[in-house]
Design a protein around this nucleic acid. Structure first.
Lengths: 193, 193
DNA sequence: CCTCGGCATTAACCTGGGTTAACGATGGGG
DNA sequence: CCCCATCGTTAACCCAGGTTAATGCCGAGG
């Protein structure tokens, strides 16, 4: 067992026997990413996923007219991958890029099939992960439907406080769906009150 | 087999043996909903789900300040339920309301456990459904991040063309995250061009 | 020490969409 | 047949957030 911290974290999602975990560690590869290096980028097959061991990534898209929007930040213990594209058998439409020097335990999509064939706990894990990510996205949908930019920023600051300071304000703005200028205005307006 | 159309539709998600399907039909109850009647509303336990047999529903929330935002429309063959709340063991925060006289094949959450205990195809189905709904929500997230109201309307008109005419423009506006007035403006502006 | 590149801030101006309200069309019920 | 409820339309006005651009603040590298 090389990654007990990760094992503990994932074990909370679904109870993975230690033997099974050892099989997974044998399949995965620890990969180092320099700042700005990419785990995945558009056009590449979405046939890999990974867990952040150390560091921080952002998953983002670039629209036709060149605007970057951030879908998520992923820190230690969290999952990396173009999950939606992978499920649909499409090539990635997403950049997944290190915001800090990072390390990742990286897998091929097929590794999951191998593990699932060997023990049902992996299937259970996969389902839990799908369900969890659904809940996250629905929460975000609700934020866009109900909240203006200031309220979204306040919620971000509350719920992802641990990220503030590690990422630039411009990246947060791209996550909130506004421009860096607008976020700066909001922040200073709140500071004034 | 009372609902072969539904069986065909769900069978496309995961291959359910006919015997298993018959068990499900025995657990489910066909329920009639008048227009405006509710399958579920906030505060109720999110312990049921159903499939639309005929008719049309909307799932919506009402924010603190009384604004309705529509999370989804659900027509024949589609799933009803406060899925996110159910997964989190929370009471519903969602209204699920018939927009037309409708019928639903309705289940208790526990029925799914029963079915899963009897045959693995139900587990597979549950996973597929989770994954599918994740993809839907991520697509919507992207629309809010990248598109303005006009572009969201155009995409809605394209992808959910079958709903237009069955639902009012005001309901579409609540789905797009804008006011009915704004949508009316957009529609007439496009008509003019 | 100076320079340069990346960020945040601020200002001026513009625009998409919100708000309120008046008006019209449609259609079902008495 | 008329009434009234429901919806969509349009107009006037307002404001949040976008756009562009200038300024200033580091911090890393020469």
């Amino acid at each position: 067992m090389k990654y007990p911290t990760l094992y503990a974290r994932i074990g909370a999602w679904a109870p993975i026997p230690e033997v099974e975990w050892d099989k997974a560690e044998a399949l995965g590869k620890a990969v180092v990413f320099a700042k700005r290096a990419r785990f995945l980028e558009p056009g590449q097959p979405a046939d890999r996923f990974g867990f952040v061991l150390t560091g921080l990534f952002r998953a983002y898209r670039v629209s036709e007219d060149g605007v970057e929007s951030v879908k998520a930040f992923r820190a230690e213990g969290e999952l990396l991958g173009a999950y939606a594209e992978q499920l649909q058998g499409l090539p990635s439409a997403t950049f997944i890029e290190a915001l800090e020097p990072s390390t990742v335990l990286s897998f091929h999509s097929a590794d999951l099939d191998t593990l699932e064939a060997g023990h049902p706990s992996w299937t259970q894990l996969a389902r839990r992960i799908a369900e969890h990510h659904f809940v996250l996205k629905e929460r975000r949908e609700q934020e866009f439907l109900e909240l203006d930019a200031e309220a979204r920023w306040l919620r971000f600051r509350e719920e992802q406080a641990h990220l503030i300071g590690r990422i630039t304000q411009a990246e947060i703005a791209a996550y909130l769906g506004i421009t860096p200028v607008a976020l700066s205005r909001i922040v200073s307006r709140l500071r004034a009150r």
